[in-house]
Simulated scan of single mutants.
Amino acid sequence: MPPVVLAQHVTKWYGSRRAVADVSFAIEPGEIVGLLGPNGSGKSTIFRMLTGYLVPTSGRIEVAGCDVVSDSLGVRRAISYVPEDAPLYDHMRVGEFLHFMAGLKGLHGAGARGAVDEAAERLELTAVMMLPAGKLSRGFRQRVSIAQALLANPKVLVLDEPTSGLDPHQVIAVRDLIRSLAGRHTVLMASHILPEIEKIASRVMILLDGRLLTSDALKEMTQHLALRLSSSSPYALIVLAAQGVSGVREVAPDADAGTGHYLVRAERRASLPADLIAALVAADVAVSELTEVRPDLERVFLDLTKRLGEAA
């Protein structure tokens, strides 16, 4: 089955400023993919190109087999976009707004009523359908924004910072909602909150300064090994012994754990911890602990950023 979203060598310039630099990726049907990066990294620019709001300076983007430049109407029929702080018509009641949006998406009569009723039920909006949008909490406004995006049953749903500004209860509710969309829709969501995107997405792409550092950060997390070492021996002796073990990439003080604790980063292979212990013992390094540390997105992001800086 071909990818539902395909970007090939996409670059976007705003005058003399390059916002996106030679980005390529593919997204399969039914995936929930997170696009992670700090503010200003190019996430919103990529989303606006995907949805036809902006035209790439160079490169090619397809959504559901439709080119965003030559077949923008086909793209818009296949995709729905919820930007950060999506505006609502505050004077409209929720039900009126959803019916209005259904009409804009080409749904009328019984088709529109059925789509609105289904969206209201899925987003738990039934109790607020008669309320003006301007009276809703931020959490409910976000639900209404997502509901209107789902009305025409899009193949692809694009969410830009969907949990931004929500309280913890609202974040959990939106997170559960996005998870429930997997399979029926392909979801591409952006965030700069690392733990949040890790909990939702099945795959995470990391963007920095307009460049794609990885198209699968979660895979990167499992490919490399991180070990926490506790020792009273001198740091220089530990580094010397560890660097003699094949696959060890770095030994650094563990700032979170305090004095006498170190993080050893290495290639993942079954015998590496035993090889490391043997090398440390042979070098008379006093080892009181050696445990595997599950890497998180923050560590992967920092490692990738460091590698990018060294290569620049």
Rank of each mutant, 00 (worst) to 15 (best):
W13M: 13
A86L: 08
L237Y: 11
G109C: 04
G95D: 07
L229Q: 01
G114K: 12
L150V: 06
I172N: 08
R184Y: 09
V63S: 00
V300C: 03
G114W: 09
C66E: 11
E198L: 06
D216N: 08
V239F: 12
P195Q: 10
T11I: 12
E84P: 07
Q8V: 12
F97Y: 11
L290V: 12
R268G: 04
V281T: 11
R17G: 09
I172M: 11
E62Y: 06
L290I: 13
G210E: 03
G109Q: 06
G52V: 01
K135A: 14
E118Y: 11
R228Q: 05
S24M: 13
I193D: 07
G37K: 01
E292S: 14
G309H: 11
R179K: 12
M130F: 13
F47N: 03
A236T: 14
Y89A: 12
L157Y: 02
L213M: 07
G260V: 05
S80K: 06
K199Y: 02
D85S: 15
G139R: 02
E310K: 03
E84D: 14
K43T: 07
L88K: 02
R143L: 02
I172G: 06
L272M: 12
M221R: 07
G139H: 03
L54I: 03
A21R: 15
E124R: 10
V239G: 10
P195A: 11
S191R: 03
L157T: 04
R249A: 09
C66Q: 10
S231K: 00
T51K: 05
L280T: 02
R77P: 03
S232D: 10
I32L: 02
A133G: 09
T45G: 08
M205P: 01
L194Y: 05
L177G: 02
T259I: 14
K219M: 12
S80M: 04
E31A: 09
A64P: 02
I27V: 12
M205S: 03
D85V: 15
L36E: 01
